[in-house]
Each structure stands twice: as C-alpha cells, then as structure tokens.
C-alpha cells in the first residue's frame, strides 16, 4: 500500500537543489548571440556569421573584411600548403611571424612533416628535398632554442620510421590532423592579437571557466549532482562511437 505511493513519488524525482539554482539563472539571448557572433568571427566562419547577422538581427564587427584572409590561411594550413599560408600571413602583416619565432618554427616544422610524408610515401622516393629544407630553414632556428631542437630531432626521426603502420605515439601525433589544427588555431590567434582583438573566442574561455568551476566546486565539497549534463545528446540523438561522442562528452571533459 504505502510502497505504491513511494514508487509514484520516485517516478518524478525532485530536482537537485543545485539544479534549481541553475534553472534560476536566466542568461540573456543577446549575450548568447553576441558570444556566438564572436565565435563565428574569431574562429573564421564568414558565411555563418553573415547569415547569423541577418537572422539574429545583430551587427557583424568591423573587421569583417579580414575574416576571409584568416579563413584562407586556415584552409592552407589544414591542407598542408604551408608555403601559401606563410606568404599570406606575411601579406597580412609581416610582423606576426617576425615577433613570434615559436609560431614561425611550428609552421616550418609542419612544412617539414608534409615534405617527409611526401617523400616517404613510397619506398624508392627521394628524401633530399626534406633534408635540404630541414638544414636550410629549420636547423639555424633550432640552434637558438633547445625546445626547437628537440622538436626538429623528433620530426627528422620520421624519416627513419616512415612508412610504418606502428609508430610510437609521439611520432604518430606529428602526422595527425590535430597538429595542423592546433598550429592553424595559433596562427589565427596571432593574427587576431596583431589586430588588437582579444585573441581567443569568448566561448573558449567560457568553456574552460565552466570546467574549472565544476572542478573547484567538487573539490570544495559543494552539494552538486553527480553529473551536470548539457543536453547536447538530446538533439543529436544516437551518436556513432567512431566520432568519439560518448556519454561523457555530454558532461564535458576536464
């Protein structure tokens, strides 16, 4: 008798007190839209930014004309055409690479990786171009900085191991698209900084703040529900595991 009433109440669990506090926060749509526009501009999605300006009836920030240049540079880096990327960056502002040797080195190293990949793709390829490039472009820079040197040595060792199915993780990382993505994103931020803009999309900082705050709050023993889902799953439905979107993805990684 009483057990049935219990089960009824259990069916609609009372929300966690913290959830009520969360629900109590009413973010303003215009703030969110501003953050979205900021993201589209700074990460370089010009078409979406234009549509968004129309649909949400907000202004595109003034430096709109430079988005396309940044997009082109990103595309060049992503597709491994580092020469073009470097030229375009210098067209935009030669100071950017001059004042950031680490970034310049990262780009050149990416170029070396591409060269090595090219000349080790088949067994009887010529590795001379890669060697020439390394000694002409990278070696002088590496001499000035132990970190550069280490990176160069690691990259050169690709020559020995490629082509190979089983590289050690450190080497395999050099071949992953994520390296290109990272360098492209650093270049993007350097360009934005050179224009006097806050370098990073606010959405990135916000995401980190969210992760940091949850970590801190849990450390401090605050009364939180075991998980704080965002509901990304609701919309995307069933996700295939190959994309790496697991349940934990929804809760955010930290």
């Amino acid at each position: 008798m009483s057990s049935s009433t219990v089960s009824v109440t259990a069916a609609t669990p009372t929300p966690h007190p913290f959830q009520l506090k969360v629900d109590d926060v009413k973010p303003s749509k215009s703030d969110i839209n501003f953050v979205i526009m900021d993201y589209l501009i700074s990460e370089g999605y010009p078409k979406a930014a234009q549509k968004f300006a129309k649909e949400a009836n907000i202004q595109i920030p003034a430096e709109e004309d430079l988005i396309q240049a940044r997009v082109d540079i990103r595309v060049a880096i992503h597709s491994g055409d580092i020469d073009t990327a470097i030229n375009k960056i210098n067209d935009l502002n030669p100071q950017i690479l001059d004042t950031d040797p680490a970034l310049h080195f990262a780009l050149l190293r990416l170029q070396l990786v591409e060269l090595i990949k090219g000349c080790t793709s088949s067994a009887n390829c010529d590795i001379t171009p890669a060697l020439t490039f390394a000694s002409a472009q990278l070696a002088p820079r590496a001499a000035t900085n132990p970190e550069f040197l280490r990176d160069l040595e690691l990259t050169m060792s690709l020559l020995i191991f490629l082509p190979s199915e089983s590289l050690q993780p450190q080497l395999a990382d050099l071949l992953k698209p994520s390296l290109k993505r990272e360098v492209a994103s650093r270049v993007n931020q350097a360009i934005l900084n050179s224009m006097g803009r806050k370098g990073e999309a606010r959405l990135r900082s916000l995401t980190r703040l969210r992760n940091w705050a949850e970590k801190k709050a849990r450390e401090a023993g605050k009364d939180l529900p075991p998980e704080l889902p965002l509901g990304l799953q609701d919309v995307e439905g069933n996700l295939d595991a190959t994309n790496g979107h697991s349940r934990t993805d929804d809760v955010m990684v930290s």
Partner: peptide, 11 residues
C-alpha cells in the same frame, strides 16, 4: 552558461 553562473556563485 546557466551552470557556469551557478557554479561560480557557489564558489
């Protein structure tokens, strides 16, 4: 955003 604000409030 809601969670962030609420968490920071807690902190």
């Amino acid at each position: 955003l809601q969670q962030t604000e609420a968490l920071v409030n807690e902190l």
